[in-house]
Simulated assay, not measured.
Amino acid sequence: MTNTNFPLHDRNSAPDASAAFDRAEAIFGMVPNLTRKMSTSPQLAEAYLDLTDRFERCSLSPEERGVVLLTVSRFHSCDYCMAAHSMTGRMTDLPDAAVDALRNDEVLSDHRLEALRQFINVMLEKRGWVDASDLEAFLGAGFNEQQIMDVILGIGLKTLSNYTNHIAQTPVDTAFENERWKAPAAQG
Rank of each mutant, 00 (worst) to 15 (best):
P62V: 00
S73C: 09
R65S: 06
E114G: 02
Y80C: 07
A101N: 07
D93I: 00
L124R: 11
E106W: 08
V107S: 04
R117A: 11
W129P: 02
L69I: 00
D96A: 15
E114R: 03
H76I: 09
L102H: 04
T88Y: 07
L124T: 04
N104I: 07
W129L: 11
S61L: 12
M123L: 12
L94N: 01
E63D: 11
I120A: 01
A98Q: 13
R112C: 00
L69R: 15
D110T: 01
V67I: 14
V107G: 02
K126G: 00
T88G: 08
G66K: 00
R112Y: 03
L60S: 13
R103A: 14
S61P: 11
V107E: 09
S109I: 06
E125I: 12
Q118F: 15
A83M: 05
D93P: 05
V68F: 01
P95G: 11
E106T: 04
P95I: 13
S86H: 08
F75A: 15
F119Y: 14
L70G: 06
H111Q: 08
E114M: 01
F119G: 04
E63K: 12
L116Q: 01
V130W: 09
M87H: 10
M87S: 05
L94I: 07
R90P: 08
V72W: 08
F75D: 13
V122M: 10
P95D: 05
I120D: 02
R112K: 15
E64K: 06
N104R: 15
H111W: 05
M87F: 09
V130E: 11
A83K: 07
M91Y: 00
Q118L: 15
M123A: 10
Q118M: 12
L113C: 06
H111I: 05
Y80D: 11
S61C: 06
A101V: 03
V72S: 08
G89C: 01
L108M: 04
Q118P: 05
D110I: 00
L70K: 08
F119S: 03
A83P: 14
A97G: 08
K126A: 07
L60G: 14
